[in-house]
Amino acid sequence: MRKTKGFTFPKIFSPPHKPPLTRARPFRAYSSVPFSPFAMLDPTILTIGGIVLGIALIERILERWGVIDLLDQFAKVMRFILPVTFYSALIYFFVTFMF
């Protein structure tokens, strides 16, 4: 009877070549995102802000004159227009802002 010889897996197949591990040198990373409060000086944003302030002043004037019916109708319209204007200006600001 013949004697069989056993082989282990690493002896039959050589392990794949692995490059030696090298450590990366540490480096300092700086953010290049320029955020400045002067970015809010966009003419479109300033125009929308001026319109909103104008609407608030008109409401105050109508309240002082005592024209409550007209003020109530004005407030109903502005309750829809002001949030739409605000979110539109916010979306416009982030779309046109250079990151």
Score class of each variant (00 low, 15 high):
L41M: 12
V95Q: 12
L46K: 08
P83L: 00
F9C: 02
S14A: 13
P10M: 01
V95Y: 13
P16S: 07
I81L: 14
Y30E: 02
Y92R: 08
F97C: 00
F74G: 00
S36A: 12
R79H: 05
R25C: 04
I68Y: 11
P26G: 00
F7I: 04
T8P: 00
F93P: 00
M40H: 04
R60Q: 04
I58A: 15
A89E: 01
A24R: 06
F7R: 08
P19F: 09
S36T: 15
F9Q: 05
T22A: 07
M78K: 14
G50R: 10
G50P: 01
I51H: 08
S88T: 12
I48Q: 14
I45C: 00
F99I: 11
I68H: 11
F80H: 13
K11W: 06
R2W: 04
F99A: 06
G49Q: 03
M78V: 05
V77M: 04
V67F: 14
F27E: 05
S36M: 03
L46Q: 12
I81Q: 06
R64D: 00
E59T: 13
L82F: 08
F38D: 15
M78R: 11
P37A: 12
F86Y: 15
D69N: 09
K5W: 10
D72K: 05
T4I: 12
M98P: 04
L41G: 02
T47I: 09
M1G: 15
S88V: 13
L53V: 15
K76C: 11
V95H: 15
T8K: 05
F74D: 03
T4E: 02
L70P: 01
L21D: 02
A56F: 05
M40P: 00
G66C: 01
S14E: 13
P43H: 07
I51R: 03
L62E: 05
F99H: 05
W65G: 04
I12E: 00
L41C: 06
V52G: 04
S14C: 03
F99Y: 09
P37H: 11
T96R: 02
I55A: 08
I91H: 11
T8L: 06
P10R: 09
F35D: 09
I12L: 13
V52W: 04
V52M: 08
F80I: 14
F97Y: 03
I55C: 00
K11S: 13
R2G: 09
T47N: 02
I45V: 11
S31A: 07
Y30F: 10
A29S: 04
M40C: 06
R2M: 03
I91N: 03
M40D: 02
S88L: 08
S14Q: 10
S31F: 08
F9I: 12
T4C: 01
L62G: 07
H17S: 02
P15R: 08
S88C: 10
R64H: 09
Q73R: 14
F27V: 13
F7L: 06
I45N: 02
Y92P: 00
I48Y: 07
T4W: 09
P43E: 08
P15Y: 04
P20E: 02
T96K: 07
L53G: 01
D72N: 12
I91L: 11
F86V: 14
L57F: 14
L90H: 07
P20A: 12
R25T: 09
T47Y: 11
T47A: 14
T8I: 13
T44I: 15
P37C: 01
D72G: 07
R79N: 07
F94M: 08
M98F: 12
M78G: 03
K3Y: 10
